[in-house]
């Protein structure tokens, strides 16, 4: 047995091992960088904002006195916006994805559309604000309304939803479509009964993540003229509105320390909302996967 291990070059091996260790530390460092930065962010925000995280924040309208200020109109505005945006962007985005994946002929025109959608997914959000201003606010005359905001945000998330839905639809095995067609199904029967049930969890995950991005957006809404000070709840689609990130932006721009703390508690609320949406996305995915 001794002979078997005699000729090992132990020096060379320990060199290789040291190298291995260095890489391990470098990768760990890369991971920790993000974690540390995120923890620092959370800790500062929570220490600044925890004091103002009380029911008043949810029930009061903004005020010029920090002590009386709340973000009721912003929270409600964000929720209204979400409720408007979600169905519109879901129907349009998934519809477009189904067309492109299942119905569209595979020609140069389709590829051109595809390329454009992928590019649009990466366009800065402020550009969508300008587009929304030109189309919805000016051309359609919707003014600085909740509806304008929701439609602009729909434009912003559509490319993301289309791309995510296309990937989900493409991931459904061809055999599952063949099985359906071979039983005499039409295209729509195959899509609705075989493809979508298999793809829906991945689609929903994509939709929720896209919507959670929109919930945190400020720039396009400022461009289309969402108000920064709204002391009432929108009662129709055509009322002016504000959303959480705009309210936070407004507070943080004030010189008084009290407003800065208020902004921190606003950020906590916003982050909790985003976490809830992400958890919902994960739960939805797991639920559907279990059903399979």
């Amino acid at each position: 047995m001794n002979n078997l291990f005699q000729d090992a070059n132990r020096q060379q091996i320990s060199g290789r091992r040291r190298n291995d260790l260095i890489w391990r530390i470098l990768f760990l460092g890369a991971t920790l960088f993000g974690i540390v930065a995120l923890s620092a962010l959370i800790i500062t925000i929570v220490t600044d904002g925890i004091a103002r995280l009380n029911p008043d924040l949810f029930t009061n309208y903004p005020s010029r006195r920090a002590s009386a200020s709340g973000m009721k109109s912003a929270i409600v505005g964000s929720l209204y916006m979400l409720c408007l945006m979600a169905p519109i962007s879901f129907v349009l985005g998934v519809g477009a994805a189904i067309y492109l994946e299942e119905y569209a002929p595979k020609n140069r025109f389709t590829r051109l559309i595809q390329l454009n959608i992928s590019t649009l997914a990466g366009v800065p959000s402020i550009v969508y604000g300008i587009l929304g201003l030109a189309i919805f606010v000016r051309t359609f005359g919707l003014e600085r309304s909740l509806l304008s905001g929701a439609l602009t945000m729909t434009l912003l998330v559509l490319p993301i939803i289309i791309v995510a839905s296309q990937e989900a639809i493409r991931a459904v095995p061809r055999a599952r479509r063949d099985a359906s067609f071979a039983l005499g199904a039409t295209k729509w029967q195959t899509v609705s009964r075989s493809v979508l049930p298999s793809a829906i969890s991945a689609i929903m995950t994509g939709v929720i993540l896209a919507l959670s991005r929109a919930i945190g957006e400020t720039a396009p809404l400022i461009i289309i003229g969402a108000a920064t000070y709204v002391a009432f709840l929108p009662e129709s689609l055509f009322d002016t509105f504000t959303v959480m990130p705009i309210q936070i932006y407004n507070w943080i721009a004030r010189p008084q320390e009290a407003f800065q703390d208020l902004a921190a508690s606003g950020i906590i609320v916003l982050m909790i909302m985003l976490v809830i949406m992400n958890v919902a996305a994960i739960m939805l995915r797991n639920k559907y996967q279990k059903n399979i």
């Binding site: 055999a175 599952r176 063949d178 099985a179 359906s180 071979a182 075989s194 049930p197 298999s198 059903n291």
Partner: peptide, 13 residues
């Protein structure tokens, strides 16, 4: 004219 494929391809149902 029904068909059975090489790989069993039941629906996830």
């Amino acid at each position: 004219v029904g068909m059975v494929f090489q790989q069993a391809n039941p629906f996830p149902k």
